[in-house]
Computed example of a mutant assay.
Amino acid sequence: MKLYIPENYDPILSVRETQEAIKYIRDTFQKELGKVLGLSRISAPLFVEKSSGLNDNLNGIERPVSFDMKELPNDEIEVVQSLAKWKRLALKKYGFKMHEGLYTNMNAIRRDEEVDNTHSCYVDQWDWEKIISKEERTIDVLKQTVQDIFKVIKHMEHEVWYKYPNAVNHLPNKIHFITTQELEDKYPTLTPKERENAISKELGCVFIMKIGEPLHSGIPHDGRAPDYDDWSLNGDIFFWHETLQCGLELSSMGIRVDENAIVEQCKKSDCLNRLELPYHKMVVNKELPYTIGGGIGQSRLCMLLLNKAHVGEVQASIWPQEMIDECEKHKIHIL
C-alpha cells in the first residue's frame, strides 16, 4: 500500500461541503469545456464487445473487466478502459462536421491499478473528441488545444474561489511545453515518474509531449496503446500538487492516428494482428474522420482545485481498510 500523509493537513471543507463543491466543479467545468472547444454533450457506453476492437488496452498489461451476456453468447463483453476509439467512431456515426466535437462522461474500472493518494480502481473523466482536417494534424494545433484546456482549468480556479475562498488551490498562470526526450536529457539519472515530478515542481504546470516511442535510452517515457494517439502528437498535462509534493496528471490527450501512423505503431508494438479488427480497418481505409481528443480526470480536477490529499476525498470507491484507517487519523476523510 502506497500512502503519503502530508504534515498538518487540514481539509477545510466538511464532507458535506466537499460534496457540494464537487457537484459545482463538475457542472461548471463541463459547460465551459464544451463552450471553449465547441463540443456537444452525448451519452457513452459503459461496456463494448471485445471483438469490435473499440476497447483501449492502455499499456497492454491491464486486464479489462469482462463478462458474458445472455443475448450475445458468442462474444465477450468488456467494461471500457477508455473511450478513445469509441468517440472517433461516434463522430462519424452521429454525423458531426469539421471542427465539431463531443464530450461525455467516461466511467471505467482499472482492476490492476495500484491504489495510492491519486490512483483508484475507479476512473471517472470527461472524454472529448473533435474533428480536424488532415492538414491540422500538427504540433501547433495540439499546443493551442492544450492552451485552451488550461484556460478553462484556470477559469475554474476563479469560479471556485468565489464560492470557497478558503479552500481553493491557487494555480500557475501559464502552462509550459516539453518533450519526453528533452525531459530525459534534462534529468538523465531520474526515472520517468521522478522526471514528471521534477519538471512539475519547477514549472508549476507542464504538457509533456511525445509519449510512446523509445527515447535515446531505449526506454519509452510511458506506455501508450499504438492504435489511438499518434505518438509524435500527444502528451499529458501535469500540475504541481504542493500538498502531495508530486506532479498530478490531469489529462492525457493527443491527435489520433491516421492511416499511416496506426500501421507503423502497431508494427513497432508487434501487434499487426489488430489491423484486422473492424475499427482498425476503418482507420486504415480512411473511413473515419481525423480527430484530436483526450480525457480529463473529474475527481483529479476536484482534488486539484480543492487541494485535497487523497482522491478518495472526492470520489466514492473501494480502498484497503488499512488505508482508510490511516487517513482518518490525519483528517483525510475517505468517501
Rank of each mutant, 00 (worst) to 15 (best):
C302V: 04
E326L: 10
L306E: 03
V311T: 14
G297R: 00
E313L: 08
W319E: 06
K308Y: 10
Q315F: 01
R300Y: 00
Q315C: 12
S317K: 07
Q315H: 07
Q315W: 02
L306K: 04
G293P: 05
L301K: 04
L305Q: 05
S299V: 04
M303D: 00
V311E: 13
E326V: 04
L301G: 07
I334C: 02
G294D: 08
H330R: 08
P320Q: 10
G312S: 03
E328S: 14
I334Q: 03
M323P: 04
G293T: 13
I334D: 01
L301D: 07
K331L: 09
I324D: 09
Q298S: 13
R300A: 00
M323N: 14
L305D: 02
K329M: 13
V314P: 06
K329N: 12
E322M: 13
L306W: 05
L304Y: 01
K329S: 13
L305F: 07
K331W: 10
R300D: 00
K308T: 04
K329Q: 12
P320C: 11
R300E: 00
L301E: 03
P289G: 12
E313N: 06
Q298L: 11
K329F: 09
H330N: 09
G297H: 07
Y290H: 15
K331H: 15
M303H: 01
P289E: 15
K308N: 03
I296P: 05
H310Q: 14
G293S: 12
I296Y: 02
M303G: 00
P320T: 07
M303Y: 02
D325W: 01
G293Y: 05
G312D: 06
T291E: 11
I332G: 09
S317H: 10
K331M: 14
M323Q: 15
K308C: 13
M303A: 03
P289Y: 09
E326P: 06
H333T: 08
